[in-house]
Structures are given as C-alpha cells and as structure tokens.
C-alpha cells in the first residue's frame, strides 16, 4: 500500500473523532461541578422531556422521510434495507 499524506485523509472525520476523544478523556480526570444539581432536575426527568419518547414512532418516521429525500443521517437512528420505490 502506498503512503498517503495527511491532506488525503478525511479532515472532517479526523476532527470529529479527535474532538470526541479529547472530550471523553477530559471527563475522566476533571472535577467539573454540575451547575444543575440533581435535585433541580425535576422538569428534565419528566417523560415528556425524553429524547427517546415513542422511539418506535420516531424510527418509523425517520425511515419514511429517508426513503423520500436525498438527505439522511444525524438522527441517531439505524435502519437497513430499501423499501423505497
């Protein structure tokens, strides 16, 4: 395999992965104090605030839009197959 220069690599992918890796490493050694205390999270714990409420419906709608649009991704959902005619 020939040597590939830095410029040839996917810059967006490298940047995203480095950012994520640095963030996770920082979490392991930092002592950041939460500015919203656990006893202040009553509203956040309400089921209507859930990011995954009605996940079966959200997954279905993602698939429905994806098969009819040119865009996809960044929804957190994973699907397979086609069903697109």
């Amino acid at each position: 395999m020939s040597h590939r220069s830095e410029r040839e690599r996917a810059p967006a992918l490298r940047a995203a992965l480095r950012l994520a890796a640095l963030a996770l490493l920082l979490a392991g050694c930092s002592g950041v104090q939460p500015w919203v205390k656990p006893y202040e999270r009553e509203h956040l714990a309400d089921p209507i605030m859930s990011l995954s409420r009605n996940s079966i419906s959200a997954t279905y709608l993602d698939h429905m839009f994806e098969t009819r649009e040119g865009s996809h991704g960044a929804t957190g959902a994973v699907g397979g197959g086609c069903g697109c005619n």
Binding site: A20, L24, A27, P34, G81, C82
Partner: peptide, 30 residues
C-alpha cells in the same frame, strides 16, 4: 439488522459507546 425483500437484501451491524460525564449533565456517544 436484517432486511429482506424480493429484490433487495441488507445486513447491517452497528456499535456505539456512550459516556455520561460532568455530573451527568453531558452524554457523549460515538
């Protein structure tokens, strides 16, 4: 995930790792 129709077959695998941090204020997922 396995998807089968008469003229299209797809096999998909996925992996992810999620980490809660900063007093559970943040969740990071790869």
């Amino acid at each position: 995930i396995n998807s089968v129709e008469p003229d299209y077959r797809a096999d998909t695998t996925y992996y992810s790792v999620s980490q809660d941090m900063f007093g559970d204020l943040t969740t990071v997922t790869l």
